[in-house]
Lab assay of single mutants.
Amino acid sequence: DNLVIALHSYEPSHDGDLGFEKGEQLRILEQSGEWWKAQSLTTGQEGFIPFNFVAKA
């Protein structure tokens, strides 16, 4: 599955970004460039995340 774990917390800075906490698990929905579309397994919310803040779970 496309699961990743957050290496750092991220505060959203643009509409459509997904904020998350360090250690949170996310499911990657789309990989494109440096911003990936993801869904939080904690909150169920979707949005874009910086790819370098996460690692394969």
Score class of each variant (00 low, 15 high):
residue 6 A to K: 01
residue 42 T to E: 11
residue 55 A to W: 09
residue 2 N to F: 15
residue 57 A to G: 11
residue 42 T to S: 13
residue 22 K to C: 09
residue 50 P to E: 03
residue 54 V to C: 07
residue 34 E to G: 09
residue 11 E to Y: 15
residue 15 D to N: 10
residue 9 S to K: 13
residue 38 A to L: 08
residue 3 L to Y: 10
residue 49 I to E: 01
residue 41 L to Q: 05
residue 34 E to M: 13
residue 45 Q to W: 07
residue 21 E to L: 12
residue 43 T to E: 01
residue 38 A to H: 00
residue 8 H to C: 15
residue 24 E to W: 03
residue 25 Q to H: 12
residue 9 S to W: 06
residue 29 L to Y: 04
residue 25 Q to V: 15
residue 52 N to P: 04
residue 9 S to Y: 06
residue 18 L to D: 02
residue 56 K to L: 14
residue 1 D to M: 11
residue 16 G to Q: 08
residue 41 L to D: 03
residue 31 Q to R: 12
residue 38 A to W: 03
residue 17 D to V: 08
residue 40 S to A: 04
residue 35 W to Q: 08
residue 4 V to Q: 05
residue 49 I to D: 03
residue 30 E to K: 07
residue 3 L to E: 04
residue 53 F to H: 08
residue 42 T to R: 15
residue 1 D to Q: 10
residue 4 V to G: 04
residue 8 H to D: 08
residue 53 F to N: 04
residue 15 D to K: 13
residue 54 V to E: 04
residue 13 S to P: 05
residue 16 G to V: 06
residue 56 K to A: 14
residue 4 V to Y: 15
residue 8 H to S: 09
residue 35 W to I: 10
residue 19 G to Q: 09
residue 20 F to L: 05
residue 26 L to S: 00
residue 8 H to F: 15
residue 51 F to N: 09
residue 28 I to S: 00
residue 4 V to P: 00
residue 40 S to F: 01
residue 38 A to F: 03
residue 7 L to C: 10
residue 52 N to G: 10
residue 17 D to T: 11
residue 20 F to W: 02
residue 23 G to S: 03
residue 40 S to V: 03
residue 54 V to I: 06
residue 49 I to C: 05
residue 55 A to P: 04
residue 50 P to I: 06
residue 12 P to C: 06
residue 49 I to H: 00
residue 25 Q to N: 08
residue 11 E to I: 15
residue 25 Q to R: 13
residue 43 T to Y: 01
residue 49 I to R: 00
residue 18 L to T: 01
residue 2 N to M: 14
residue 40 S to T: 02
residue 13 S to T: 14
residue 43 T to M: 02
residue 33 G to H: 05
residue 5 I to K: 03
residue 21 E to Y: 11
residue 6 A to L: 04
residue 4 V to M: 12
residue 21 E to W: 07
residue 53 F to Y: 14
residue 37 K to C: 12
residue 41 L to H: 03
residue 24 E to H: 03
residue 42 T to K: 14
residue 26 L to R: 00
residue 48 F to N: 08
residue 39 Q to P: 00
residue 46 E to M: 15
residue 42 T to L: 13
residue 5 I to S: 04
residue 53 F to R: 05
residue 33 G to S: 06
residue 29 L to I: 12
residue 52 N to C: 13
residue 38 A to K: 00
residue 15 D to Q: 12
residue 21 E to G: 08
residue 3 L to T: 07
residue 50 P to Y: 09
residue 43 T to H: 02
residue 1 D to V: 10
residue 21 E to D: 08
residue 34 E to A: 12
residue 17 D to N: 09
residue 48 F to T: 07
residue 18 L to W: 04
residue 48 F to L: 11
residue 37 K to A: 05
residue 48 F to R: 10
residue 25 Q to A: 10
residue 56 K to V: 14
residue 2 N to P: 06
residue 20 F to C: 05
residue 45 Q to P: 00
residue 1 D to H: 10
residue 17 D to W: 14
residue 19 G to F: 06
residue 49 I to F: 06
residue 32 S to E: 12
residue 53 F to V: 06
residue 42 T to P: 03
residue 33 G to M: 03
residue 9 S to V: 05
residue 20 F to G: 00
residue 9 S to I: 04
residue 56 K to E: 11
residue 17 D to G: 13
residue 43 T to W: 01
residue 57 A to C: 14
residue 24 E to G: 00
residue 12 P to N: 04
residue 48 F to I: 08
residue 18 L to E: 02
residue 26 L to Y: 02
residue 1 D to Y: 12
residue 5 I to W: 09
residue 40 S to P: 00
residue 26 L to M: 08
residue 44 G to L: 09
residue 6 A to Y: 02
residue 41 L to F: 05
residue 27 R to N: 06
residue 19 G to S: 08
residue 45 Q to A: 11
residue 47 G to K: 00
residue 14 H to I: 08
residue 41 L to W: 03
residue 23 G to Q: 01
residue 22 K to F: 07
residue 56 K to M: 14
residue 27 R to M: 12
residue 49 I to W: 02
residue 1 D to A: 11
residue 11 E to P: 07
residue 23 G to D: 06
residue 15 D to T: 11
residue 9 S to G: 09
residue 37 K to S: 05
residue 23 G to T: 03
residue 56 K to H: 14
residue 34 E to F: 15
residue 3 L to S: 02
residue 15 D to R: 10
residue 16 G to E: 07
residue 14 H to T: 09
residue 2 N to Y: 14
residue 52 N to E: 12
residue 43 T to F: 01
residue 11 E to G: 07
residue 10 Y to E: 00
residue 7 L to A: 05
residue 25 Q to E: 10
residue 21 E to T: 13
residue 37 K to Y: 15
residue 6 A to D: 01
residue 1 D to L: 10
residue 18 L to Y: 03
residue 56 K to P: 15
residue 10 Y to G: 00
residue 2 N to W: 13
residue 17 D to Y: 15
residue 23 G to C: 08
residue 14 H to N: 13
residue 12 P to A: 12
residue 21 E to P: 02
residue 33 G to W: 03
residue 32 S to V: 14
residue 12 P to M: 06
residue 46 E to V: 15
residue 34 E to V: 14
residue 14 H to Q: 12
residue 36 W to Y: 10
residue 35 W to M: 13
residue 21 E to I: 13
residue 56 K to G: 11
residue 49 I to L: 03
residue 18 L to S: 03
residue 38 A to Q: 01
residue 14 H to S: 10
residue 17 D to K: 09
residue 46 E to H: 08
